[in-house]
Design a protein around this nucleic acid. Structure first.
Lengths: 208, 208
DNA sequence: AATTCCGGAGAACAGTTGTTAACTGCATGG
DNA sequence: CCATGCAGTTAACAACTGTTCTCCGGAATT
């Protein structure tokens, strides 16, 4: 299928990825709206003008980072929400999965949490788009569950959005305790689990 | 009691407030980490050096903005959560109150939503502190409710945090549709109301 | 009435920024 | 094998940044 790219395009993509990685690193301690293009190229070790070969602006780079951070997460979401087991088991697995993702991709998670309401409109919109897609996918998965019998489409989407937001909130909490002792991290996991559980209980009694 | 300040201190506070107001305006379209001190003083019409008479840095100004945005909200939170009426009535009133606050203080709300996970650590911490105080106050209010009989202190705080986060999420949603037609704003209000209601249902069946 | 205090102004500093133009060297396609 | 394309470089630009030091005028204090 995918054609093996020449050594030219390969080099280009390598530089592009280096720019993305450097930017992601710099964004751990600042917001995108204050990220300078020279700052990024300096970190990579290329001339400032090389930046323009890959991105129109830092905002443009930000949109690419959104795709990188969230684009590959869709299958994960789907399989998690519609996995087997009873409610409590699924919740526990979801929280563990979030914790694991935050541990392996902290910079990506931080970037999304930060720029979701950040100062760059195009990036905000890109994130909202992805999250809306997540919510839609969660909605579809929820609809397949027998518990959702009798639910309106609006209410399913309402619940899906609640779940998505709760996942992001949980991810952000895990971020805050990344360097904290195991004990506190477990405490955060337990709080997140109970919040999810409470929402699920609300779901089960919604039609009463 | 409060001494009437001389015309000297009055002028100073006036300039300080002008700096805060100008900064808040500029922050509608960017993040605090990219806000320049000269930018702020230029907007006010004073010399750049005058800034130092009031704040050590823009981060310092950010902390002051947090106090201004959230400091006066504590009594409002308390009375809202522990108001009379049945569950649905209280939720509806809370959502209306949030909508009203977003309409009257959009810049403040945007600032908090943006900088809660923003790039300036001291401001992030100031916001977390205030939100933790909110959660504590909500917890106390919840504890007074007969529905909370048999709840552990941890679970009350868990629920309080869920409510606080949900309020912020709702506020952020209202921000996004500030300029939208009345119809869409009502739709957002209804979604927020139902999410709150679902959480409340989960609360009522928590001990089952 | 004389003196101190202090918020703000002014000028200057070295360093940074985004963007432009014209260039170089090398992989590519004919 | 040679001509084209294009990722990356070099140099220069005007504009901007935070910070320092010195100064001024008027309110506050005595």
């Amino acid at each position: 299928m995918s054609h093996t790219l020449g050594i030219r395009q390969a080099q280009k993509q390598k530089t592009r990825q280096a720019l993305l990685d450097a930017a992601l690193g710099l964004l751990e301690e600042q917001s995108l709206s204050s990220l300078g293009l020279r700052e990024v190229t300096r970190a990579v070790g290329v001339a400032p003008t090389a930046f323009y070969r890959h991105f129109r602006s830092t905002a443009d780079l930000g949109v690419a980072l959104v795709e990188e951070a969230l684009g590959s997460l869709h299958p994960m979401i789907r399989t998690t929400v519609s996995s087997a087991g009873d409610s409590d088991q699924r919740i526990e697995r979801a929280v563990e999965l979030i914790a694991h993702h935050v541990e392996t991709q902290p910079a990506h998670v931080r970037f999304i949490a930060r720029e979701r309401h950040g100062g760059v409109q195009s990036v905000r919109e890109a994130i909202q788009d992805q999250l809306a897609r997540f919510a839609e996918e969660v909605k579809v998965a929820l609809a397949e569950d027998p518990v959702s019998e009798g639910w309106s489409d609006d209410d399913l989407l309402m619940l899906a959005n609640l779940y998505v937001d709760q996942m992001l909130m949980t991810a952000s909490l895990f971020l805050d305790v990344l360097e904290a002792p195991e004990e506190e991290r477990r405490r955060v996991a337990q709080v997140a689990t109970r919040q999810m559980r409470l929402i699920s209980i609300g779901r089960e009694h919604w039609l009463d």
